[in-house]
Design a protein around this nucleic acid. Structure first.
Lengths: 351, 351
DNA sequence: CGACGGCATGTTAGCGCTCACAATTCTGGA
DNA sequence: TCCAGAATTGTGAGCGCTAACATGCCGTCG
């Protein structure tokens, strides 16, 4: 029974108590699963609750317990695959644990917008906030804000004094770069994401570390803004370079693009320039968006388990809310390398 | 001042009243913008509020006013571009109007899951629900559920007795089909979405109506599940057909694919089969996802303003909550045709 | 000059629930 | 048989706020 007889207002705990012939407190005990209630009473109350379609008033509960059981989420770019998946994971995990979540989607993670978002959520009495704001500046601003409740970051980096969860971007980039090196490329070029994104930074660092460890030259960096268009532009530059020095002068035979969407742009630029992928230049992306498997050609990439990331952030947040957290913890999840046709095996260069 | 001095608990309205030397009711009046308060008093109270970092307790307010100012959103597939954008629009609009939103992301829109979601939201006292569940069955189940608050659907069709907002899918499909017919194709094939999706149905209907109006043959329908893979498979079938009858036997020179992701799959299948787009077969999609512009080749598609759709749903919902709604209204937004390279102009067939 | 209406403010009584404690009943062992 | 102690249930007092009414003050009009 979901419906409320529309004329009369919703039944209260007192109504249930009266009908069941017990005190309102006993009803409360039954509903909270308190152990010391006789099976008889419990059954009687439960039946009346069903019959009346009674539902506890969460506002009254929140007032009496001083617990709202509400969490806030602050996110940007929620229309992209990564943030959207993370958000879904956060919401599902929170719901399972008995919390209501409310998400605030920002257009830009300025300090002002962040402050306003935190104020908005604080006004609703959230007990904690998950911030999916992967910029160094945003995380810094958030840390400085001193919100009235615990805040955990997602992809917020490990060097701030805010607890957080991340996928190991550095490792993913390293795996990908090493994959390219072991499949016959003398070095790997890189189209990075925006400089102020922590994810971008970590991917670049992982790429560079892998190259250095292998003792190979680190080519100059190109930068995009995650969009297919910026990837396309970077791709045009790279293609120009390849065509200008046909003898593989720059060793430009493999490109690690910092996300799949930009990789799509790079692929298009290469195709337009008459470069074949992977025969002339291998291309790899990052994220494994659902479309990646159907790119021309299917894209080698690094899969990120965004849903687990979201769930994990809720776990960490609740530790803080419930006071069982020790210090400022950071959780890290491992990514997975997905090899597809865009980086097909290459013969080692002949001497 | 965001931070609460951690040791002591948050100040109450009574605290503010005491410091400002007025009654708590006057503080309440100031905070609610009640007109009958002297400027002097108002200023004094405002200052104390600032100074103490006071924030009204929303639970207490909800209890006293019997208004939670909370809305629920039920959505499925929130990781896709369309639903995610709609969700963002819903949240932003609700926040602007002073409401808190809480989203429940379902894995599947079964009757059971829907019931549970509505129960969950009802338990939190939401005053209304926006349902982004574009299946006929889901909308039917929702209508039968008799939720304890108003429910509006997004893309829920116009034939149920639930108010809703939609983009005009029928018109969009018609525009696209007519575009293809006027650019020299004798007919247009169609890869539809799943049969139980209302959007899919409307797009198919629009396509068929355009063909009939033009007095041309309606080719058999292929069906996918929105995924690139299903598009790929449909594309393989279509390619096989073209190659089997090189003389354009089936008039298969143009395909309208029901969404951009499947179109990506179709494009790949055509490319693999040696068919050129648009020279051999023109391809068009639907949705205008951000990647569509970078497909090989850039995809002609129909742009949908999901954000406006979301905002519009909130407008409608609030009309129902505030009692100003007249009957079961349906709002419709017009889509926009985006012509790109995948349907480049075609010479009229020579006789 | 006194009654009256409008403005500014205060007082009181809940909203529906949980907490702390009190009261009652039931159990088993001396 | 009686009583300590546990199990079960009830009572009263808020949680922090708003709605409704009550009060006091001013100027104004008959």
């Amino acid at each position: 029974m979901i419906q409320q007889p529309d004329g009369s207002k919703a039944p209260t705990m007192a109504d249930v108590a009266r009908v069941a012939g017990v005190s309102h407190q006993t009803v409360s005990r039954v509903l909270s699963g308190h152990p010391n209630v006789s099976a008889r009473t419990r059954a009687a109350v439960t039946e009346v609750v069903e019959q009346l379609g009674y539902r506890r008033n969460s506002a009254a509960r929140a007032l009496a317990t001083r617990r709202t059981h509400t969490l806030g989420v602050i996110a940007v770019n929620t229309t992209l695959h990564g943030p959207a998946s993370t958000l879904a994971g956060v919401q599902e995990a929170a719901r399972e644990r008995g919390y209501l979540t409310s998400a605030v989607t920002l257009r830009a993670a300025t300090e002002e917008a962040l402050t306003e978002a935190v104020q908005h959520l604080a006004g609703w009495g959230v007990e904690g906030i998950v911030a999916i704001t992967p910029w160094r500046d945003a995380v810094r601003a958030l840390a400085a804000l001193e919100a009235p409740c615990p805040v955990v970051t997602v992809e917020g980096g490990h060097d701030m004094d805010l607890p957080g969860v991340s996928l190991d971007q550095h490792l993913g980039a390293r795996m990908l770069t090493e994959h390219l090196l072991t499949t016959g490329h003398s070095t790997v070029w890189h189209v990075a994401g925006p400089a102020d994104w922590l994810e971008s930074e970590a991917r670049t660092a992982g790429w560079e570390a892998a190259l250095r460890d292998a003792g190979v030259e680190v080519p100059p960096l190109l930068r995009g803004d995650w969009s297919p268009l910026s990837g396309y532009q970077a791709g045009q530059q790279l293609a120009g370079r390849v065509l200008a020095s046909p003898g593989r002068a720059g060793g430009l035979t493999a490109v690690f693009v910092a996300n799949d969407q930009m990789a799509l742009g790079v692929l298009r630029a290469f195709r337009e320039a008459g470069l074949r992928t992977p025969a002339d230049v291998a291309v790899a992306g990052f994220d494994d968006i659902p479309e990646a498997e159907f790119f021309p050609p299917p894209l080698t990439t690094v899969r990120q388990d965004f849903a687990s990331l979201g769930r994990s952030s809720i776990g960490l947040l609740l530790e803080h809310i419930e006071g069982t957290a020790e210090g400022v913890a950071h959780h890290t999840l491992a990514p997975e390398l997905i090899v597809r046709a865009s980086t097909a095996r290459r013969e080692p260069p002949r001497d």
